[in-house]
Nucleic acid binder design. Structure first.
Length: 568
RNA sequence: GAUUCCGUAGCUCAGCUGGUAGAGCAAUACACUUUUAAUGUAUGGGCCCUGGGUUCGAAUCCCAGCGGAAUCACCA
């Protein structure tokens, strides 16, 4: 990168860097800095005169001649520090203060300071610096929001694109963003803690899978060179966890990064995190109780209360949660009873509710549409919706009282699914038939029907104990617990389109002339173009290569003739 | 995928019916020994997203593209 491409401020910071080196100051020292205090802790337990050593980024500087204030931000928060020229430079040489501190340090630099705690005349807890050291120089200016006396933030760094692409900057200047991710980690820790105390085991299963099973979704595909086979990024880990139950573990869980090659929006990212847990000898009734206990525990651990605010809604994760069968839910909101209705009856009922239907929809799909359209959005408080139609749930055990239903529940919060659980299907023959039905759906054109995993069926044939499994969308859950309506806000690095490098290409005269000629003709035969320039073969070759490399023109073959064409 | 809105200084944003590009913060220089959105004075900083078009003249109007956001559709 040439200096001309840098902004004025970046050039100045690079110059400061050089001046520091000339003064014998290493802007990137190697030695550890003996930090023994943190900003928040100093402010929470004020001890006048206490010696402290802390480090962090300098985010503001208020220079008043021979004395100055600055703010240092460490991992815990910010604290004001006080610099006094004649204390830092007791001799005639005032370079350290006048040059280094006042001129060569910039906002964003990492500083280590030693000093003692005191309160200023205005009463702000601060550190009186007796010694300071540059720990790392920052070469780019940070966006610096300011908060005024009434707490209003000015010049906030808010552009979502910049915030997501440069999350490191977002985290430095936006405290509330950091808090979201701290809560995210608290949630994971709380869940682990809950499961571990119950005696269940955290496990790891393959992310690269030969058969992407356990859910209905389009997978990412990749290739293993040594085996020369396609491999898929997992869309779910369910079938592997069940294999472990077959293997004799009582309870296994995994926080699973899953990958789905589908659309992105406010609630979907191509990679997302699910938690799945499988417990032997349990059913979905047990799992409902377990789930409500779990979520109450997690809400407390994250927010210190079971109450959470999400947009206009106030939700309470305190157990127990209401339980409503899907049949009852539909009766409640439409007056229509789906029990023992034929496909045709369901279709006309759906139609009369103003739902778009078509002939490819089976019973399960129709019921799902009615529920999704008329009921789902009404469940704001955590509610278990139970007993889903069989067609929707190929991995779930048939309901003990009604063979058209399955023992499945979903937990709805704010009208969206947060968790999904089954009494797991462990009858290998039934499971094979269900997979085969999926295959038929696939043949009918349903491109999201499940693949058949023969090895999983083999495992089931050896016998899997009755088991209940639960999956929780971790990203969605943390959205609710932190009042964030978009998944990008709870992922450190949400997927974005790649940044385009808008580096301007510098062309020499020959390259410019060639480009101009091609531009005039849109496309031109290579031989004609070559003949138009009286230059050496070598110059011709390098010029054309520069143009193609920078994707200004492309060369292609059409019936043995080489054509040069403008790109774009 | 459709529709709407947005893209101007390091950051946040003005910029009218087309006529030499603006503010605050940040930066630079000077002053200032307990300030706190520090203050005062002065100064510098722009491919106005990209490419076409209309025009004597485009940040502004039109078209296309790129990037982002929101709503909807699709998808769990």
């Amino acid at each position: 990168m040439s200096l001309q491409e840098l902004s004025e401020q970046e050039i100045l910071r690079r110059e400061s860097l050089q001046k520091l080196r000339q003064l014998g100051i290493d802007p990137y020292p190697a030695a550890l800095y003996p930090v023994d205090a943190f900003a928040a802790q100093i402010k929470d337990n004020f001890e006048d005169g206490k010696q402290v050593c802390l480090a962090g980024r300098m985010l503001s500087q208020r220079i008043m001649g021979k004395a100055s204030f600055a703010e240092i931000q460490d991992a815990s928060g910010r604290i004001q520090v006080y610099f006094n020229r004649d204390e830092l430079c007791p001799t005639e040489d005032k370079t350290l203060y006048n040059e280094v501190f006042k001129k060569l340090l910039d906002l964003g630099d990492f500083l280590g300071v030693k000093g003692y705690v005191f309160k200023t005349q205005v009463g702000e807890i601060s550190v009186h610096v007796t010694e300071f050291q540059l720990l790392s120089k920052s070469l780019r200016p940070l966006p610096l929001p300011k908060t005024d006396a009434s707490g209003v933030v000015h010049d906030a760094f808010t552009d979502p694109e910049l915030r997501y692409r440069q999350r490191y900057v977002d985290l430095v200047v936006n405290r509330q963003v950091k808090d979201v991710f701290i809560k995210r980690t608290k949630l994971f820790n709380a869940m682990r803690d809950f499961f571990n105390r119950a005696g269940y085991m955290e496990v790891e299963t393959p992310i690269l899978q030969a058969i992407p099973g356990g859910a209905s979704a389009r997978p990412f595909i990749t290739h293993h060179n040594a085996l020369d086979i396609p491999l898929y990024m997992r869309i779910a880990n369910e079938l592997y966890l069940k294999r472990l139950i077959v293997g004799g573990f009582d309870g296994v869980y995994e926080f699973s990064k899953n990958f789905r090659n589908e659309g992105m929006d406010r609630t979907h990212n191509p990679e997302f995190t699910a938690m799945e847990i499988y417990v032997a000898y349990k059913d979905y009734n047990w799992m409902m109780e377990f789930t409500e206990q779990l979520l109450e525990h997690c809400a407390m651990a994250v927010n210190g209360t079971t109450i959470a605010t999400f947009g206009e809604h106030t939700i309470d994760f305190k157990a127990p949660y209401k339980r409503v069968t899907m049949r009852q839910a539909i009766i409640d909101f439409t007056g229509f009873d789906i029990h023992q209705k034929t496909e045709e009856e369901l279709r006309s009922a759906a139609q009369s509710m103003g739902i778009e239907v078509d002939q490819s929809m089976g019973k399960g799909k129709l019921i799902d549409e009615i529920f999704g359209e008329k009921c789902e959005g009404n469940y704001i408080q955590p509610t278990f919706i139970t007993d889903y139609p069989k067609e929707m749930s190929p991995l779930c055990k048939v309901h003990r009282d009604d063979s058209s239903l399955t023992e499945r529940f979903e937990l709805m919060v704010c009208g969206k699914e947060v968790a999904n659980a089954y009494s797991e299907l462990n009858d290998p023959i039934d499971q094979r038939e269900r997979f085969e039905e999926q295959l038929k759906l696939q043949e009918r054109g349903d491109d999201e029907a499940m693949f058949i995993d023969q090895d999983f069926l083999r495992a089931l044939e050896y016998g899997m104990p009755p088991t209940s499994g639960l999956g929780i969308g971790m990203d969605r859950l943390i959205m609710y617990l932190t009042n964030n309506p978009s998944i990008q806000e709870v992922l450190f690095f949400p997927q974005m389109r790649p940044e385009i490098q808008s580096s301007k290409v510098q062309l020499n005269d020959t390259e410019g002339a060639i480009l101009k000629m091609v531009q005039e003709q849109k496309q031109i035969e290579l031989s004609t173009l070559r003949a138009a320039f009286d230059i050496s073969n070598k110059l011709w070759d390098t010029s054309l290569k520069t143009l193609t490399k920078n994707q200004l023109v492309s060369v292609f073959k059409e019936q043995d003739t080489l054509i040069v064409k403008i790109v774009g």
